[in-house]
Write a protein that binds this DNA or RNA. Sequence first.
DNA 1: GCCAACGTTGGC
DNA 2: GCCAACGTTGGC
Length: 137
Amino acid sequence: MAYWLFKSEPDTWSWEMQVKKGKKGQEWDGVRNYTARNNMREMKKGDLGFFYHSGGERQIVGIVEVVKEAHPDSTDDTGKFDCVDIAAVKPVPNPVTLADVKADKQLAEMALVKLSRLSVQPVTEAEWKRVCKMGAV
DNA sequence: GCCAACGTTGGC
DNA sequence: GCCAACGTTGGC
């Protein structure tokens, strides 16, 4: 089991929109970055991820599950990019903000801090547990 | 709205 | 294959 973090501008694709898609989930399409694509290719069905709102909110608001492994991105006409399908699992009762992550010594090495521009990031098991604890999951 | 970080593109 | 120019992202 691996853990990930999906970033999105809430104006473009929000947690609320993700929840409305239910258990069937939704293609995480539109990614045009090779590192992010490669991360998605590593994902297995059943892997879990955080759902992070960038922009004005900057906080982890929910937990998602990979429901379909990497396949060609239907919105990409170059054939270079893949995406996975993810479904909302449950909200984070106490959203963990970027400031919270930065202020926590155990999370200082998180990709969210170190690789702030990467839209699909790996999360270690230790980081996962720590954020879940902070978020009262 | 600015700016730093960084990925991508294109000329050589 | 290198590197400068450029565009985009995202935090502040």
